[in-house]
Computed example of a mutant assay.
Amino acid sequence: MRNFFCFLLLLTFISCESDGNNQFCDIINNQTINLANPEFINLQVPAGWNYANGGPKGLILYNFGSSFKAFSRECPQLSCSNKMTVENDIKMVCPCDGAQFSILDGSPQTSGITNSVCEFRVIQVSGTVLNVTNY
C-alpha cells in the first residue's frame, strides 16, 4: 500500500508541469474616467484610445463604439520596469523586449510570447463616466 501511495504522489508531481504562463494581474483601485475631460477626447470616438492613471503603471483605454476595454500598461514580462505604449493605434508594445499585443483583446502578437496583457472591467456609468475595476 505504501508503494502505491508513493506512486500516486510521484504521478501528481510529474503531472504538475508549468505551462510558462505565470502572469499575475495586479489588483487596482476603482478608477473613474470622465470622458468630458479634454484629456480623454480621443476616447469619445470609436477606435479611439487613451492612457489613464490606475494600477502600478497606468492603463490603456480603448473605445469599441458600444463598449470600452482597459488594459494594464505593465508588460507581461514581469522583469520589465517600463510602461507599454500604443503604436499605430492597433497594438500595444513592451519597450523591454519589443513584444506586441493586440489592443482589441490584449493577446500576444509576437511568437514565443504566451502571456496576454492584463485586462480590467470597464462599466459605463453614464454617457460620459466610466468606472474601471477588477473583474
Rank of each mutant, 00 (worst) to 15 (best):
P76V: 11
F5M: 05
N88F: 07
C16D: 10
I90S: 12
N22R: 04
S81I: 14
A70W: 02
D19H: 02
F5Q: 10
N50F: 10
G48C: 09
L78F: 13
K69N: 02
L9H: 03
Q109E: 14
G20N: 05
S102C: 00
Q31Y: 06
K83F: 04
T114N: 07
K91L: 10
S66G: 11
L35N: 05
E119C: 08
S66W: 03
Q100E: 15
C80I: 15
D19G: 10
C25R: 11
L43D: 09
G48D: 06
L43Y: 08
F24I: 04
G58Y: 11
S81L: 13
C75Q: 05
C118Y: 01
A99R: 00
M84C: 04
F101K: 09
K57M: 14
L8D: 00
V86K: 00
S102H: 01
F40M: 04
Q31T: 05
P76Y: 03
V132N: 01
F24A: 03
G20P: 05
P56I: 04
P46W: 06
P76E: 00
N34D: 06
K69F: 03
C16T: 00
N131W: 09
M1V: 07
P95R: 13
W49H: 13
N63A: 03
N29L: 14
S72K: 14
F120P: 02
G98R: 01
G127C: 01
S18K: 01
S79A: 02
S15K: 13
I113H: 00
K91W: 01
N30C: 04
M92R: 06
N37G: 00
Q77T: 13
T32P: 09
L9S: 13
T85S: 10
G98T: 07
P76H: 07
P46T: 06
D97S: 11
S107M: 13
S67G: 09
V132C: 09
R121K: 15
D97Y: 10
G98A: 09
K83I: 06
A47R: 04
V129H: 07
S107H: 05
S81G: 03
V125D: 06
G54Y: 05
E119N: 12
V125M: 08
S18N: 00
N82S: 15
A70Y: 10
L130M: 05
G54E: 00
S111C: 09
T85I: 04
N88K: 08
Q124P: 02
N3Q: 09
K83W: 02
K69R: 07
A52S: 14
F64G: 10
N22I: 01
N30Q: 15
S67L: 13
K57L: 01
G55P: 06
L78Y: 13
Q31W: 09
G98M: 05
S66F: 08
L35V: 07
E17G: 14
S66Y: 08
S126C: 01
V122P: 03
I123A: 14
N134S: 15
I28K: 11
Y135Q: 15
V117Q: 05
Q44A: 08
N134Q: 15
N22M: 01
R73L: 14
R121Q: 13
S67K: 15
G127D: 07
S66C: 10
Y62K: 12
N29Q: 14
N30M: 15
N29E: 15
Q109A: 08
F5H: 04
G65L: 11
I90M: 03
